[in-house]
């Protein structure tokens, strides 16, 4: 048993959980939903074990470091944070339909990690990454990303739900009501914003200790700032201008697109974060 195998298994387990969440939602059956919850927890356990095993394996190779150093490892960690955060939300709000919109994101991230163009080899840390800030920076950033991912899933649910003014569409009746979806989006955005802020700050402090400048307008820095501004706009619009519902849902979707560009799109541009490819 090695970490790559364990993480491949995790991918399938997440895929299965996602299918069951969708079945439970479409056919309105409670049993597949409960099974989905348990399978997702099993997936999370595999995912956790996979991350730790990879950590141990890197030490066995003599190049020990936390598995947070390249695209493959970041995708694995991204899925893990999404699933953990979602399990908390499911537990608190007792609604499994959200799972049908969030668990596929975790599955897609894992599936993307297993594509052949993303190397799953454990590589030694390049000198720039050898720092205690690595863990703090990556963990805060990805907790932020995953909260935004869940906010994105819930915003999509909001936009679907609000098309049904007469509340006659059977498929949408099991959705949490609009106020709950709106409130949940806001809460996830708040959590994400706090962590994104932390992520940018830890990154800046790290940059200052590695390169001598806390900010150098590298594409990843610039795009993380753009993302930060989109969500700052959302929070101000909601708290100061009383925006609710559809407008907030759209802003949360735009914010998540910015997150995705910060994460993947920036790799197409040259910059200091090129090792994260």
């Amino acid at each position: 048993m090695n970490s790559s195998l364990l993480l491949s298994i995790t991918t399938f387990v997440y895929g299965l959980a996602a299918v069951l969440y969708i079945i439970a939602w479409i056919f309105k059956k409670p049993q597949p939903g409960k099974t989905a919850s348990w399978i997702l927890i099993i997936g999370a356990v595999c995912n956790t074990a996979g991350i730790f095993l990879r950590w141990v394996e890197s030490y066995k190779l003599g190049i020990g470091h936390a598995p947070l150093s390249n695209m493959y490892e970041s995708l694995i960690f991204f899925s893990w944070t999404i699933v953990i955060l979602y399990i908390v939300v499911e537990h608190r709000y007792k609604n499994r339909v959200i799972g049908a919109f969030v668990s596929p994101i975790a599955f897609l991230a894992m599936a993307y990690a297993s594509l052949p163009n993303i190397s799953d080899r454990i590589q030694p840390l390049i000198p720039a990454l050898k720092s205690n800030w690595l863990i703090a920076h990556v963990v805060t950033c990805f907790l932020g990303y995953s909260a935004f991912a869940i906010a994105f899933g819930i915003s999509i649910m909001y936009l679907i739900k609000q098309t049904d003014k007469t509340e006659k569409i059977r498929l949408l009746s099991s959705f949490p009501n609009l106020e709950v979806l709106d409130e949940l989006t806001q809460q996830m955005v708040v959590v994400g914003f706090l962590f994104l802020t932390g992520g940018i700050i830890t990154g800046a402090v790290w940059a200052n200790s590695a390169w001598g400048t806390y900010w150098s307008w590298d594409p990843k820095e610039t795009w993380s700032l753009i993302t930060w501004f989109v969500y700052a706009t959302l929070l101000h619009a909601r708290l100061m201008r009383g925006w609710h519902g559809k407008q907030i849902a759209y802003l949360s979707i735009i914010g998540f697109l910015a997150v995705m560009f910060t994460y993947f799109g920036v790799n197409l541009l040259p910059g200091l974060h090129s090792y994260a490819k």
């Binding site: 000198p127 720039a128 050898k130 720092s131 200790s209 590695a210 390169w211 001598g212």
Partner: peptide, 17 residues
């Protein structure tokens, strides 16, 4: 000095780059 471990002297920072 190595990358991520600069030298600071009289307010001036010297980094391996």
């Amino acid at each position: 000095i190595i990358v991520n471990d600069p030298l600071r002297y009289r307010g001036i920072n010297i980094y391996q780059s």
